[in-house]
Amino acid sequence: MELKGKTAIITGASRGIGRATALALAKAGANVVINYTSNELKAAAVKEQIENDGGSAVIFKADVTEYKQCEALVQCAIDHFNRVDILINNAGITRDNLLARMKPEEWREVIDTNLSGVYNCCRAVMRPLLKQKSGGRIINIASVAGIHGNSGQANYAAAKGGVISFTKSLAKELGSRNVTVNAVAPGFIETEMTEALSGQVKEQVLSRIALGRFGQPEDVADLVLFLASSAAYITGQVIVVDGSLSM
């Protein structure tokens, strides 16, 4: 899987799945733009690790809920690496609550980041991607919750379900330009996002996973790398990486 000369933007890349994806794409030769919102130290550590392995990366602070900042993020890729070929929309948050208790801001924050953030970044990358006339790859990190729903995550599931439909629509719009657009739907992946869940919930989830373990960020990054590189004839798809959790 060769990505030499390609440039990839990964949102929310300072930790978790975004971090693992940035490392995987860089290892395959891509120039990587590591986006982060708050944790500059962790983002810088990802950059350092990539550079130590002989890759090239830059970090860029941008809040994906702000369109202007997404434009600046794309411009950063062009300024540093002269082009952008791959966009990984990974930035995401949770504000879990039963709907009966869910505050309007808990709904809004999740929709703003997880769904509107995907629109913002895709919209910002459209012009350079089309202008280059060399195709491209957009990969949106959704969730099994976006397919099956999840109690306590009506906001998160709605946003991720929206991302899946967005992915399919954009795949149809951009197919003629050789830009593939796919969604990846992780199950329970061990990251800071899932760390907060109680031991009891984790036990319950684990008992439903045929592979008998939680997923690692690298399990998701493997698939993203495949979709970003060799998967030339796959578009508009949602691919589940969950060890069978949702089966």
Binding site: R127, L130, K131, E173, L174, S176, R177
Partner: peptide
């Protein structure tokens, strides 16, 4: 989409 690209140019 051709028209949109043309407009951008």
């Amino acid at each position: 989409l051709d028209i949109v690209e043309l407009v951008m140019a």
